[in-house]
């Protein structure tokens, strides 16, 4: 017996969903929303609290260098917080106003942005931190001998840059395994959508 397209449609539409625990899902989502709200509030409090703590306990009034160091740290922290915030908050899932193609474009852009943050911006952040801490140490270590000071500055700089470099490499390797194939697939889909 021939199966025409109407038969196929009927066959397709005969499939029904299983029993799904919708109540459980809604309860879980509500709990997650509360948790996420708490986390956002924590981040919003921790960044300024750290800066306030540093400004209270560091002798920035006594030295312009320490003040400069604190300002660099503040700028770096706010910049990184803003970067993280902007990469997450993008309305990439606002499917009400985006067509499929636009959605794919935004998803791709979002994934590329993650690579840029890890590969470029985090190095700049590491350099800023190293500069800021070296300025502060330059003042704080003044009573010590020249040789010890140089050793501490070099050690501190290498430690910060080394730690950040290995963390970034590890993250990029992870991205290569997870994000890259996904980006290639999305690029393929986008190309299909354009053709």
């Amino acid at each position: 017996m021939q199966t025409n397209f109407n038969d196929i449609q009927q066959l397709w539409q005969s499939q029904k969903t299983d029993d799904f625990d919708l109540r459980g899902l809604i309860d879980g989502l509500k709990k997650t929303e509360i948790k996420q709200r708490r986390e956002k509030i924590s981040i919003a409090i921790i960044t300024p609290a750290t800066l306030i703590f540093l400004f209270i306990f560091m002798p920035w009034q006594e030295s312009k260098a320490i003040l400069l160091s604190l300002l660099v740290i503040a700028v770096a922290m706010i910049w990184v917080a803003w970067l993280s915030f902007s990469s997450v908050v993008k309305p990439s899932d606002d499917s009400d106003s985006f067509s499929n193609r636009e959605y794919l474009k935004i998803q791709l852009e979002k994934l590329r942005q993650r690579y840029t943050i890890a590969g470029k911006h985090m190095y700049f952040y590491a350099v800023l931190l190293a500069v800021a801490l070296n300025i502060a140490y330059f003042v704080l270590l003044a009573p010590l001998s020249g040789g010890i000071r140089i050793a501490i500055h070099v050690g501190l700089t290498l430690m910060i840059l080394g730690f950040m470099h290995f963390s970034i490499r590890r993250r990029i390797r992870k991205y290569d395994k997870t994000l890259k194939p996904m980006m290639e697939q999305l690029e393929k889909l986008l190309l299909d959508a354009k053709n």
Partner: peptide, 9 residues
């Protein structure tokens, strides 16, 4: 739209 975009991703 939500369903299809999610399915594609």
């Amino acid at each position: 739209r939500i369903a299809y975009n999610t399915a594609l991703t």
